[in-house]
Protein backbone atom coordinates (compact mmCIF):
# COMPACT_ATOMS: atom_id res chain seq x y z
CA UNK A 1 0.00 0.00 0.00
CA UNK A 2 1.15 3.54 -0.63
CA UNK A 3 1.57 6.01 2.19
CA UNK A 4 -1.65 7.66 1.08
CA UNK A 5 -3.55 4.37 1.17
CA UNK A 6 -2.19 3.43 4.58
CA UNK A 7 -3.15 6.81 5.98
CA UNK A 8 -6.60 6.62 4.44
CA UNK A 9 -7.25 3.17 5.94
CA UNK A 10 -6.00 4.44 9.28
CA UNK A 11 -8.49 7.33 9.17
CA UNK A 12 -11.28 4.94 8.16
CA UNK A 13 -10.46 2.62 11.07
CA UNK A 14 -10.09 5.31 13.71
CA UNK A 15 -13.18 7.22 12.67
CA UNK A 16 -15.23 4.09 11.91
CA UNK A 17 -16.18 5.42 8.49
CA UNK A 18 -15.25 3.47 5.36
CA UNK A 19 -16.40 6.31 3.14
CA UNK A 20 -13.56 8.62 4.13
CA UNK A 21 -11.42 9.53 1.12
CA UNK A 22 -8.40 11.68 1.88
CA UNK A 23 -7.12 14.43 -0.42
CA UNK A 24 -3.93 16.42 0.14
CA UNK A 25 -5.69 19.75 0.48
CA UNK A 26 -8.09 18.54 3.19
CA UNK A 27 -7.87 20.09 6.66
CA UNK A 28 -9.24 18.63 9.88
CA UNK A 29 -12.52 20.42 9.37
CA UNK A 30 -12.94 18.72 5.98
CA UNK A 31 -12.67 15.21 7.45
CA UNK A 32 -16.04 14.13 8.89
CA UNK A 33 -15.80 13.02 12.52
CA UNK A 34 -12.41 14.61 13.27
CA UNK A 35 -13.29 16.10 16.65
CA UNK A 36 -11.16 16.47 19.76
CA UNK A 37 -11.66 12.84 20.79
CA UNK A 38 -10.83 11.55 17.34
CA UNK A 39 -7.82 13.85 17.29
CA UNK A 40 -6.20 12.05 20.22
CA UNK A 41 -7.04 8.66 18.72
CA UNK A 42 -5.64 9.72 15.34
CA UNK A 43 -2.49 11.09 16.88
CA UNK A 44 -1.85 7.94 18.87
CA UNK A 45 -2.64 5.64 15.97
CA UNK A 46 -0.44 7.56 13.52
CA UNK A 47 2.41 7.44 16.03
CA UNK A 48 2.00 3.69 16.54
CA UNK A 49 1.49 2.82 12.89
CA UNK A 50 4.24 4.98 11.36
CA UNK A 51 6.66 4.84 14.29
CA UNK A 52 6.83 8.59 14.77
CA UNK A 53 6.41 10.77 17.83
CA UNK A 54 4.82 14.19 17.47
CA UNK A 55 6.15 17.03 19.56
CA UNK A 56 3.38 18.41 21.75
CA UNK A 57 0.32 18.92 19.62
CA UNK A 58 2.22 19.06 16.34
CA UNK A 59 -0.52 17.10 14.59
CA UNK A 60 -2.87 20.05 15.00
CA UNK A 61 -0.34 22.37 13.40
CA UNK A 62 -0.11 20.75 9.98
CA UNK A 63 -1.95 22.87 7.46
CA UNK A 64 -3.51 19.90 5.70
CA UNK A 65 -3.27 16.19 4.92
CA UNK A 66 -0.54 16.90 2.34
CA UNK A 67 1.72 18.37 5.02
CA UNK A 68 1.09 15.43 7.32
CA UNK A 69 2.03 13.07 4.49
CA UNK A 70 5.19 15.04 3.76
CA UNK A 71 6.12 14.82 7.46
CA UNK A 72 5.55 11.06 7.51
CA UNK A 73 7.53 10.65 4.29
CA UNK A 74 10.44 12.65 5.77
CA UNK A 75 10.28 10.47 8.90
CA UNK A 76 11.01 7.56 6.59
CA UNK A 77 7.67 5.77 6.60
Amino acid sequence: MTLHERLEELFQNVLGDDAIALRDEMTSTDVPGWDSVAHVNLMFTIEQTFGVQFKGNELAEFANIGELKAYLARAGS
Binding site: N13, V14, L15, G16, D17, N41, F44, T45, Q48, T49
Partner: peptide, 15 residues
Amino acid sequence: EAFVHWQGAASLLDR
Protein backbone atom coordinates in the same frame (compact mmCIF):
# COMPACT_ATOMS: atom_id res chain seq x y z
CA GLU B 1 -4.43 -5.47 23.82
CA ALA B 2 -3.29 -3.04 21.14
CA PHE B 3 -5.25 0.18 21.57
CA VAL B 4 -5.09 0.90 17.84
CA HIS B 5 -6.99 -2.29 17.05
CA TRP B 6 -9.38 -2.03 19.98
CA GLN B 7 -10.25 1.55 19.18
CA GLY B 8 -10.94 0.69 15.53
CA ALA B 9 -13.03 -2.31 16.58
CA ALA B 10 -14.95 -0.34 19.20
CA SER B 11 -15.72 2.38 16.73
CA LEU B 12 -16.92 -0.15 14.14
CA LEU B 13 -18.95 -1.98 16.78
CA ASP B 14 -20.75 1.16 17.88
CA ARG B 15 -21.72 1.77 14.28
